[in-house]
């Protein structure tokens, strides 16, 4: 079993340089295409973000934020209205609360560091979504929960994630997490805003998707990620140690149906990949 209560070391990460993002949303489409997700029927979106939030079929959504951009050119200080895009998906927390919350062990962390929901094990209870401080997992029409897989299938085949490969301006840098983290620290030292480092213990202090922005796009980070992630829902107090206590009766019923035969009552196997 992977070390779910300790931040996992090793594996991969992605540095997201928001300054370079032109908001083309090629990443959003590439994600749907690679993962075989159906297009979502949408309406006009007054924020331009479309679909307006993550869905079970849209694991990556580019959010658009409007703010006041400050630019300093020599002694000249300029200020203008700017719309900044933020490509957004599962953050792949170093110690993912979603995996701790899952009562059937459907969520595992692969050795690549990808937090993956196994849809064959998922019973649709929604605990992962409630535990996730970023509100990432979304329920599909089959009742099960879906989210970004870090394209672990591609990584295992020696490729970068689909969104990383398709981005025309090189917003995403994909690489070993140590390199990504140290690159992010260097950007922070240059005075850029960084999100994804030194966060709360609840998520293992950091995420594998780390965002950086210069001062003129900093407003986008603070609008997308207000404050530090906290565990949000009271019902989840006690996760993960007391996992069984919080299972509702309905959940237990579904659990017993979902459990493969041959598994003893109370014994929940966590599926681990690549081990």
């Amino acid at each position: 079993m992977s070390a779910l209560t300790q931040p996992q070391t090793g594996g991969y990460g992605v540095l997201v340089d928001l300054d370079k993002c032109i908001g083309c949303r090629a990443c959003e489409v590439a994600c749907q295409d690679w993962n075989g997700r159906r297009a979502v029927k949408t309406e006009f979106s007054p924020t331009f973000t479309n679909p307006p939030d993550l869905t079970a079929n849209t694991w990556k959504v580019v959010f658009f934020y409007e703010g006041q951009a400050q630019k300093q050119i020599g002694s000249l200080s300029l200020s203008q209205i700017s719309i900044a895009p933020v490509p957004y998906q599962c953050m792949h927390c170093l110690d993912p609360p979603c995996a701790r919350a899952c009562p059937v062990g459907a969520i595992s962390v692969t050795k690549e560091g990808a937090v993956v929901i196994d849809k064959d094990l998922c019973i649709g209870c929604g605990y992962c979504q409630a535990a996730c401080p970023y509100n990432v997992p979304r329920q599909g029409s089959d009742g099960k929960f879906y989210k970004c897989t870090l394209c672990v299938d591609r990584i295992q085949a020696g490729k970068a994630p689909a969104c990383v490969e398709v981005c025309p301006t090189g917003v995403f840098t994909f690489g070993p997490i140590e390199q990504i983290t140290s690159a992010a620290r260097q950007e922070a030292a240059k005075g850029r805003t960084v999100y994804g480092l030194d966060l709360t213990d609840y998520i293992g202090r950091g995420t594998r998707w780390i965002y950086v922005a210069s001062p003129d796009r900093q407003f986008a980070i603070s609008q997308r990620f207000p404050g530090k992630p906290l565990r949000s829902l009271g019902v989840l107090k006690g996760v993960p140690k007391d996992r069984d206590r919080i299972l509702s009766r309905a959940c237990r019923r579904r659990l017993s149906r979902a459990r493969p035969s041959g598994m003893a009552q109370g014994e929940i196997k966590r599926k681990t990949r690549g081990s």
Binding site: A39, K41, T42
Partner: peptide, 12 residues
């Protein structure tokens, strides 16, 4: 193209 229509379903 459904994916593109999803992004901007109509003019504005």
């Amino acid at each position: 193209v459904p994916y593109l229509r999803e992004l901007v379903p109509m003019p504005f």
